[in-house]
Design a protein around this nucleic acid. Structure first.
Lengths: 190, 190
DNA sequence: GTCTATAGGGGGATAGAC
DNA sequence: GTCTATCCCCCTATAGAC
Protein backbone atom coordinates (compact mmCIF):
# COMPACT_ATOMS: atom_id res chain seq x y z
CA UNK A 1 0.00 0.00 0.00
CA UNK A 2 1.46 3.33 -1.05
CA UNK A 3 1.94 6.09 1.46
CA UNK A 4 -0.63 8.37 -0.07
CA UNK A 5 -3.24 5.65 0.00
CA UNK A 6 -2.54 5.14 3.67
CA UNK A 7 -2.89 8.86 4.34
CA UNK A 8 -6.14 8.99 2.44
CA UNK A 9 -7.45 5.98 4.30
CA UNK A 10 -6.54 7.44 7.67
CA UNK A 11 -8.20 10.73 6.80
CA UNK A 12 -11.35 8.91 5.73
CA UNK A 13 -11.37 6.92 8.95
CA UNK A 14 -11.13 10.07 11.04
CA UNK A 15 -13.68 11.89 8.93
CA UNK A 16 -16.13 9.01 9.21
CA UNK A 17 -15.78 8.91 12.99
CA UNK A 18 -16.21 12.68 13.21
CA UNK A 19 -19.29 12.59 11.01
CA UNK A 20 -20.86 10.01 13.30
CA UNK A 21 -19.84 12.05 16.32
CA UNK A 22 -20.37 15.72 15.44
CA UNK A 23 -21.97 15.80 12.01
CA UNK A 24 -20.87 17.49 8.80
CA UNK A 25 -21.18 21.03 10.11
CA UNK A 26 -19.79 20.05 13.49
CA UNK A 27 -16.29 18.99 12.47
CA UNK A 28 -13.48 20.84 10.74
CA UNK A 29 -10.30 20.12 8.82
CA UNK A 30 -8.48 21.27 11.94
CA UNK A 31 -9.98 18.35 13.91
CA UNK A 32 -8.60 15.83 11.44
CA UNK A 33 -5.25 17.57 11.11
CA UNK A 34 -4.81 17.65 14.88
CA UNK A 35 -5.45 13.94 15.31
CA UNK A 36 -3.22 13.15 12.35
CA UNK A 37 -0.46 15.38 13.68
CA UNK A 38 -0.27 17.54 10.57
CA UNK A 39 -1.46 20.98 9.55
CA UNK A 40 -4.78 22.02 8.14
CA UNK A 41 -3.50 22.54 4.60
CA UNK A 42 -2.20 18.99 4.34
CA UNK A 43 -5.75 17.67 4.42
CA UNK A 44 -6.79 20.01 1.65
CA UNK A 45 -4.05 18.46 -0.48
CA UNK A 46 -5.79 15.08 -0.30
CA UNK A 47 -9.37 16.35 -0.32
CA UNK A 48 -9.55 19.88 -1.77
CA UNK A 49 -13.00 20.70 -0.45
CA UNK A 50 -15.05 19.50 2.49
CA UNK A 51 -17.66 18.30 0.05
CA UNK A 52 -15.04 16.08 -1.63
CA UNK A 53 -14.16 14.60 1.72
CA UNK A 54 -17.77 13.96 2.68
CA UNK A 55 -18.50 12.33 -0.65
CA UNK A 56 -15.44 10.09 -0.36
CA UNK A 57 -16.59 8.87 3.05
CA UNK A 58 -20.03 8.04 1.75
CA UNK A 59 -18.77 6.31 -1.39
CA UNK A 60 -16.37 4.17 0.60
CA UNK A 61 -19.17 3.14 2.93
CA UNK A 62 -21.40 2.22 0.02
CA UNK A 63 -18.69 0.07 -1.55
CA UNK A 64 -18.01 -1.59 1.78
CA UNK A 65 -21.68 -2.45 2.15
CA UNK A 66 -21.84 -3.76 -1.40
CA UNK A 67 -18.86 -6.04 -0.74
CA UNK A 68 -20.47 -7.38 2.39
CA UNK A 69 -23.83 -8.23 0.90
CA UNK A 70 -22.28 -9.87 -2.13
CA UNK A 71 -20.00 -12.01 0.00
CA UNK A 72 -21.22 -15.56 0.55
CA UNK A 73 -20.75 -15.16 4.29
CA UNK A 74 -23.76 -12.86 4.22
CA UNK A 75 -25.46 -14.01 1.03
CA UNK A 76 -25.86 -17.57 2.23
CA UNK A 77 -27.21 -16.77 5.68
CA UNK A 78 -30.73 -17.69 6.70
CA UNK A 79 -33.16 -14.75 6.69
CA UNK A 80 -33.09 -14.61 10.48
CA UNK A 81 -29.28 -14.55 10.53
CA UNK A 82 -29.33 -11.88 7.84
CA UNK A 83 -31.47 -9.70 10.07
CA UNK A 84 -29.11 -10.28 12.99
CA UNK A 85 -26.16 -9.39 10.79
CA UNK A 86 -27.84 -6.19 9.67
CA UNK A 87 -28.77 -5.16 13.18
CA UNK A 88 -25.23 -5.94 14.35
CA UNK A 89 -23.97 -3.20 12.03
CA UNK A 90 -25.89 -0.70 14.13
CA UNK A 91 -25.07 -2.38 17.42
CA UNK A 92 -21.38 -2.16 16.51
CA UNK A 93 -21.68 1.57 15.96
CA UNK A 94 -21.50 1.81 19.73
CA UNK A 95 -24.51 3.68 20.96
CA UNK A 96 -22.74 3.76 24.32
CA UNK A 97 -20.15 6.08 22.79
CA UNK A 98 -22.72 8.44 21.36
CA UNK A 99 -22.11 7.47 17.76
CA UNK A 100 -24.95 7.58 15.25
CA UNK A 101 -25.19 6.23 11.72
CA UNK A 102 -23.81 8.17 8.76
CA UNK A 103 -27.16 8.36 7.03
CA UNK A 104 -28.92 9.75 10.08
CA UNK A 105 -26.17 12.26 10.71
CA UNK A 106 -26.27 13.52 7.15
CA UNK A 107 -30.05 13.56 6.82
CA UNK A 108 -30.45 15.58 9.99
CA UNK A 109 -28.28 18.27 8.40
CA UNK A 110 -29.55 17.54 4.91
CA UNK A 111 -30.67 21.11 4.22
CA UNK A 112 -27.26 22.56 4.97
CA UNK A 113 -24.88 20.16 3.23
CA UNK A 114 -23.59 20.46 -0.37
CA UNK A 115 -25.72 19.09 -3.20
CA UNK A 116 -23.20 16.44 -4.25
CA UNK A 117 -23.20 15.08 -0.75
CA UNK A 118 -26.98 14.96 -0.61
CA UNK A 119 -26.95 12.66 -3.64
CA UNK A 120 -24.55 10.27 -1.94
CA UNK A 121 -26.72 10.12 1.17
CA UNK A 122 -29.70 9.34 -0.99
CA UNK A 123 -27.82 6.58 -2.81
CA UNK A 124 -26.61 4.91 0.38
CA UNK A 125 -30.04 5.04 1.98
CA UNK A 126 -31.51 3.41 -1.12
CA UNK A 127 -28.89 0.65 -1.07
CA UNK A 128 -29.62 -0.19 2.55
CA UNK A 129 -33.35 -0.16 1.96
CA UNK A 130 -33.19 -2.35 -1.13
CA UNK A 131 -31.19 -5.04 0.59
CA UNK A 132 -33.30 -5.05 3.74
CA UNK A 133 -36.52 -5.21 1.77
CA UNK A 134 -35.32 -8.31 -0.08
CA UNK A 135 -34.22 -9.97 3.16
CA UNK A 136 -37.61 -9.33 4.74
CA UNK A 137 -39.49 -10.67 1.74
CA UNK A 138 -37.30 -13.77 1.71
CA UNK A 139 -37.90 -14.33 5.42
CA UNK A 140 -41.64 -13.97 5.17
CA UNK A 141 -41.77 -16.36 2.22
CA UNK A 142 -39.73 -18.84 4.24
CA UNK A 143 -42.18 -18.52 7.11
CA UNK A 144 -39.75 -17.19 9.73
CA UNK A 145 -40.82 -13.54 9.64
CA UNK A 146 -44.35 -12.38 10.19
CA UNK A 147 -45.60 -8.90 9.38
CA UNK A 148 -48.53 -7.25 7.64
CA UNK A 149 -48.16 -4.90 4.69
CA UNK A 150 -45.42 -4.53 2.12
CA UNK A 151 -41.77 -5.51 2.63
CA UNK A 152 -40.83 -2.06 1.32
CA UNK A 153 -42.71 -0.32 4.12
CA UNK A 154 -41.49 -2.72 6.78
CA UNK A 155 -37.90 -2.22 5.61
CA UNK A 156 -38.31 1.56 5.72
CA UNK A 157 -39.73 1.24 9.22
CA UNK A 158 -36.88 -0.88 10.55
CA UNK A 159 -34.25 1.37 8.99
CA UNK A 160 -35.92 4.48 10.39
CA UNK A 161 -36.10 2.78 13.76
CA UNK A 162 -32.41 1.93 14.12
CA UNK A 163 -31.46 5.37 12.82
CA UNK A 164 -33.69 7.09 15.36
CA UNK A 165 -32.76 4.72 18.17
CA UNK A 166 -29.06 5.53 17.90
CA UNK A 167 -29.91 9.20 18.26
CA UNK A 168 -32.20 8.49 21.19
CA UNK A 169 -29.35 6.71 22.94
CA UNK A 170 -27.45 9.98 23.15
CA UNK A 171 -30.10 11.55 25.35
CA UNK A 172 -31.51 8.50 27.11
CA UNK A 173 -28.68 5.97 27.20
CA UNK A 174 -27.55 2.90 25.30
CA UNK A 175 -29.81 0.62 27.32
CA UNK A 176 -32.86 2.12 25.63
CA UNK A 177 -31.24 1.52 22.24
CA UNK A 178 -30.81 -2.16 22.97
CA UNK A 179 -34.41 -2.35 24.13
CA UNK A 180 -35.50 -1.05 20.75
CA UNK A 181 -33.34 -3.60 18.94
CA UNK A 182 -35.01 -6.37 20.90
CA UNK A 183 -38.43 -4.92 20.12
CA UNK A 184 -37.67 -4.92 16.39
CA UNK A 185 -37.13 -8.66 16.60
CA UNK A 186 -40.19 -9.23 18.78
CA UNK A 187 -42.26 -7.39 16.19
CA UNK A 188 -40.90 -9.48 13.34
CA UNK A 189 -40.24 -13.04 14.50
CA UNK A 190 -42.98 -15.58 14.89
CA UNK B 1 -50.47 40.80 24.68
CA UNK B 2 -47.54 43.16 25.20
CA UNK B 3 -45.25 44.03 22.35
CA UNK B 4 -42.24 42.34 23.85
CA UNK B 5 -44.16 39.13 24.33
CA UNK B 6 -45.14 39.25 20.68
CA UNK B 7 -41.55 39.77 19.63
CA UNK B 8 -40.39 36.93 21.80
CA UNK B 9 -43.07 34.67 20.42
CA UNK B 10 -42.21 35.51 16.83
CA UNK B 11 -38.54 34.87 17.48
CA UNK B 12 -39.34 31.52 19.05
CA UNK B 13 -41.54 30.58 16.09
CA UNK B 14 -38.77 31.39 13.64
CA UNK B 15 -36.13 29.65 15.75
CA UNK B 16 -38.28 26.54 16.04
CA UNK B 17 -38.79 26.39 12.27
CA UNK B 18 -35.08 26.93 11.65
CA UNK B 19 -34.15 24.21 14.13
CA UNK B 20 -36.42 21.77 12.30
CA UNK B 21 -34.99 22.91 8.99
CA UNK B 22 -31.26 23.46 9.47
CA UNK B 23 -30.42 22.36 13.00
CA UNK B 24 -28.84 24.23 15.89
CA UNK B 25 -25.46 24.69 14.20
CA UNK B 26 -27.07 25.36 10.85
CA UNK B 27 -28.96 28.54 11.65
CA UNK B 28 -27.80 31.92 12.91
CA UNK B 29 -29.16 35.03 14.58
CA UNK B 30 -28.83 36.68 11.19
CA UNK B 31 -31.39 34.26 9.72
CA UNK B 32 -33.95 35.24 12.33
CA UNK B 33 -33.15 38.93 12.13
CA UNK B 34 -33.52 38.92 8.36
CA UNK B 35 -36.95 37.30 8.43
CA UNK B 36 -38.05 39.60 11.23
CA UNK B 37 -36.78 42.65 9.39
CA UNK B 38 -34.49 43.78 12.21
CA UNK B 39 -30.78 43.66 12.93
CA UNK B 40 -28.77 40.92 14.51
CA UNK B 41 -28.30 42.68 17.84
CA UNK B 42 -32.04 43.05 18.38
CA UNK B 43 -32.37 39.30 18.77
CA UNK B 44 -29.60 39.25 21.36
CA UNK B 45 -31.66 41.74 23.39
CA UNK B 46 -34.43 39.16 23.77
CA UNK B 47 -32.24 36.06 23.97
CA UNK B 48 -28.68 36.98 25.01
CA UNK B 49 -27.07 33.72 23.93
CA UNK B 50 -27.93 31.10 21.35
CA UNK B 51 -28.16 28.56 24.15
CA UNK B 52 -30.85 30.71 25.83
CA UNK B 53 -32.80 30.76 22.60
CA UNK B 54 -32.51 27.03 22.07
CA UNK B 55 -33.59 26.30 25.62
CA UNK B 56 -36.58 28.63 25.31
CA UNK B 57 -37.74 26.81 22.18
CA UNK B 58 -37.49 23.45 23.89
CA UNK B 59 -39.22 24.60 27.06
CA UNK B 60 -42.10 26.10 25.14
CA UNK B 61 -42.53 22.87 23.21
CA UNK B 62 -42.56 20.85 26.40
CA UNK B 63 -45.21 23.07 27.95
CA UNK B 64 -47.28 22.90 24.79
CA UNK B 65 -47.15 19.12 24.86
CA UNK B 66 -48.05 19.05 28.55
CA UNK B 67 -51.09 21.25 27.89
CA UNK B 68 -52.22 18.98 25.10
CA UNK B 69 -52.00 15.71 26.98
CA UNK B 70 -53.73 17.15 30.04
CA UNK B 71 -56.58 18.52 27.97
CA UNK B 72 -59.70 16.39 27.94
CA UNK B 73 -59.77 16.50 24.15
CA UNK B 74 -56.75 14.20 24.23
CA UNK B 75 -57.12 12.65 27.66
CA UNK B 76 -60.54 11.22 26.94
CA UNK B 77 -59.72 9.72 23.56
CA UNK B 78 -59.74 5.98 22.97
CA UNK B 79 -56.27 4.40 22.86
CA UNK B 80 -56.49 4.06 19.10
CA UNK B 81 -57.45 7.71 18.70
CA UNK B 82 -54.65 8.68 21.05
CA UNK B 83 -52.17 6.93 18.78
CA UNK B 84 -53.63 8.69 15.76
CA UNK B 85 -53.37 12.02 17.55
CA UNK B 86 -49.76 11.36 18.44
CA UNK B 87 -48.82 10.31 14.93
CA UNK B 88 -50.62 13.36 13.56
CA UNK B 89 -48.13 15.55 15.40
CA UNK B 90 -45.40 14.12 13.21
CA UNK B 91 -47.52 14.08 10.08
CA UNK B 92 -48.22 17.78 10.61
CA UNK B 93 -44.51 18.51 10.75
CA UNK B 94 -44.67 18.31 6.96
CA UNK B 95 -42.19 15.74 5.82
CA UNK B 96 -42.88 17.07 2.32
CA UNK B 97 -41.22 20.33 3.31
CA UNK B 98 -38.13 18.64 4.69
CA UNK B 99 -38.91 19.40 8.31
CA UNK B 100 -37.81 17.00 11.04
CA UNK B 101 -38.73 16.83 14.71
CA UNK B 102 -36.97 19.01 17.29
CA UNK B 103 -35.74 16.05 19.29
CA UNK B 104 -34.20 14.36 16.27
CA UNK B 105 -32.59 17.56 15.09
CA UNK B 106 -31.03 18.22 18.49
CA UNK B 107 -29.95 14.65 19.14
CA UNK B 108 -28.20 14.41 15.80
CA UNK B 109 -26.06 17.38 16.88
CA UNK B 110 -26.11 16.38 20.53
CA UNK B 111 -22.32 16.30 20.87
CA UNK B 112 -21.92 19.86 19.67
CA UNK B 113 -24.70 21.74 21.45
CA UNK B 114 -24.44 23.50 24.85
CA UNK B 115 -24.93 21.44 28.02
CA UNK B 116 -28.04 23.28 29.13
CA UNK B 117 -29.67 22.52 25.82
CA UNK B 118 -28.77 18.85 26.05
CA UNK B 119 -30.72 18.64 29.30
CA UNK B 120 -33.81 20.12 27.69
CA UNK B 121 -33.65 17.64 24.82
CA UNK B 122 -33.39 14.83 27.32
CA UNK B 123 -36.38 16.14 29.29
CA UNK B 124 -38.59 16.48 26.21
CA UNK B 125 -37.70 13.04 24.93
CA UNK B 126 -38.60 11.58 28.32
CA UNK B 127 -41.94 13.38 28.36
CA UNK B 128 -42.87 12.03 24.94
CA UNK B 129 -41.78 8.53 25.86
CA UNK B 130 -43.65 8.49 29.15
CA UNK B 131 -46.92 9.53 27.59
CA UNK B 132 -46.65 7.11 24.66
CA UNK B 133 -45.77 4.22 26.92
CA UNK B 134 -48.90 4.79 29.02
CA UNK B 135 -51.08 5.04 25.91
CA UNK B 136 -49.69 1.76 24.57
CA UNK B 137 -50.22 -0.04 27.87
CA UNK B 138 -53.77 1.27 28.06
CA UNK B 139 -54.48 0.12 24.51
CA UNK B 140 -53.12 -3.35 25.06
CA UNK B 141 -55.10 -3.75 28.26
CA UNK B 142 -58.21 -2.65 26.37
CA UNK B 143 -57.51 -5.28 23.72
CA UNK B 144 -57.12 -2.91 20.76
CA UNK B 145 -53.32 -2.99 20.49
CA UNK B 146 -51.29 -6.14 20.15
CA UNK B 147 -47.56 -6.35 20.64
CA UNK B 148 -45.05 -8.52 22.43
CA UNK B 149 -42.61 -7.21 25.04
CA UNK B 150 -42.76 -4.19 27.30
CA UNK B 151 -44.73 -1.01 26.59
CA UNK B 152 -41.55 0.94 27.39
CA UNK B 153 -39.63 -0.75 24.58
CA UNK B 154 -42.50 -0.50 22.13
CA UNK B 155 -42.87 3.20 22.91
CA UNK B 156 -39.15 3.78 22.38
CA UNK B 157 -39.39 1.91 19.10
CA UNK B 158 -42.30 3.95 17.78
CA UNK B 159 -40.71 7.23 18.80
CA UNK B 160 -37.41 6.26 17.21
CA UNK B 161 -39.29 5.25 14.09
CA UNK B 162 -41.13 8.52 13.51
CA UNK B 163 -37.97 10.48 14.29
CA UNK B 164 -35.95 8.48 11.78
CA UNK B 165 -38.72 8.43 9.20
CA UNK B 166 -38.91 12.22 9.03
CA UNK B 167 -35.19 12.30 8.32
CA UNK B 168 -35.52 9.58 5.72
CA UNK B 169 -38.17 11.65 3.94
CA UNK B 170 -35.55 14.29 3.17
CA UNK B 171 -33.54 11.89 1.04
CA UNK B 172 -36.24 9.54 -0.21
CA UNK B 173 -39.42 11.60 -0.25
CA UNK B 174 -42.51 12.13 1.89
CA UNK B 175 -44.26 9.12 0.36
CA UNK B 176 -41.85 6.78 2.13
CA UNK B 177 -42.57 8.59 5.41
CA UNK B 178 -46.28 7.96 5.08
CA UNK B 179 -45.60 4.32 4.29
CA UNK B 180 -43.75 4.02 7.58
CA UNK B 181 -46.62 5.66 9.48
CA UNK B 182 -48.99 3.10 8.01
CA UNK B 183 -46.63 0.29 8.91
CA UNK B 184 -46.50 1.45 12.54
CA UNK B 185 -50.25 0.99 12.72
CA UNK B 186 -50.17 -2.36 10.91
CA UNK B 187 -47.61 -3.56 13.44
CA UNK B 188 -49.73 -2.46 16.38
CA UNK B 189 -53.43 -2.87 15.61
CA UNK B 190 -55.17 -6.20 15.77
C1' DG C 1 -36.10 47.96 21.65
C1' DT C 2 -33.46 48.69 17.93
C1' DC C 3 -29.61 50.77 15.87
C1' DT C 4 -24.33 51.11 14.37
C1' DA C 5 -19.97 49.59 15.16
C1' DT C 6 -16.85 46.46 16.53
C1' DA C 7 -14.45 42.87 18.97
C1' DG C 8 -12.90 38.18 18.67
C1' DG C 9 -13.04 33.62 17.10
C1' DG C 10 -13.47 29.81 13.78
C1' DG C 11 -14.01 27.91 9.47
C1' DG C 12 -12.87 26.74 4.42
C1' DA C 13 -9.69 27.47 1.11
C1' DT C 14 -5.42 28.99 -1.64
C1' DA C 15 -0.41 30.50 -2.76
C1' DG C 16 4.08 29.65 -2.68
C1' DA C 17 8.25 27.97 -0.12
C1' DC C 18 10.54 23.73 1.22
C1' DG D 1 3.24 16.05 0.86
C1' DT D 2 3.60 19.17 4.20
C1' DC D 3 4.72 23.63 5.74
C1' DT D 4 3.76 28.90 6.79
C1' DA D 5 1.19 32.66 5.80
C1' DT D 6 -2.76 34.69 4.51
C1' DC D 7 -7.47 35.83 2.66
C1' DC D 8 -12.19 36.20 3.30
C1' DC D 9 -16.35 35.03 5.12
C1' DC D 10 -19.66 34.02 8.74
C1' DC D 11 -20.69 33.66 13.37
C1' DT D 12 -21.64 34.90 18.45
C1' DA D 13 -21.62 38.51 21.39
C1' DT D 14 -21.06 43.23 23.48
C1' DA D 15 -20.85 48.52 23.97
C1' DG D 16 -22.90 52.62 23.55
C1' DA D 17 -25.86 55.93 20.82
C1' DC D 18 -30.67 56.88 19.68
Amino acid sequence: MSKIKNSKRTILNLAEALLQDKGFNGFSYANIAAELGVKNAAIHYHYPSKEDLGIAVMQRYRERFKLWINNSRVKDLTPEAKLDWFLSIYINMRADQGKICLVGSMEAEFNSIPDGLQSEVQALHKDLLTWLQAALAEGRDAGVFTFKGEPADKAALILSTVQGALQMARALGAKKFHGVIQQIKLDLLK
